[in-house]
């Protein structure tokens, strides 16, 4: 099971958002799973083509997501996946 963590900034929109464990082969699987649990969360992370939003980053282990258009990066068991917002101006 991948261990998924979220930027606390997403709790503004999903107040009960919490770290979770997800059965997943790829990052795309993770987004689909967390969107099932927190309906609409996926739209905050990816666009309607399934691409990572421009100012969102995902770490798979200690590596930045490689496939930002398909989210096909594989996720090994017990990998920690962190969804963060990129830094941007005011």
């Amino acid at each position: 099971m991948a261990q998924v963590k979220f930027t606390p900034n997403l709790r503004r929109f999903f107040p009960d958002l919490c770290d979770c464990a997800v059965e997943a082969a790829t990052v795309a699987d993770i987004i689909a799973a967390v969107d099932q649990r927190w309906r609409g969360l996926g739209d905050y992370i990816i666009d309607e083509r399934g691409c990572l939003r421009k100012h969102v980053n995902i770490f798979v282990g200690d590596q930045l997501l490689h496939d930002k258009t398909g989210l096909s990066d594989s996720v090994a068991a017990d990998t920690r996946v962190i969804i963060v917002q990129a830094l941007s101006g005011g």
Binding site: F13, Y44, D47, H55, V56, S88
Partner: peptide, 29 residues
């Protein structure tokens, strides 16, 4: 227009006392 999280739509049926997010329009595949 969230800088990070994309464009969203919100509506209120009570003059702004409460708001509900509704799914933003999506372009077809």
């Amino acid at each position: 227009d969230h800088g990070h999280w994309g464009g969203k739509l919100q509506r209120s049926h009570d003059g702004g006392a409460s708001w509900q997010e509704v799914a933003a329009p999506k372009y077809p595949e």
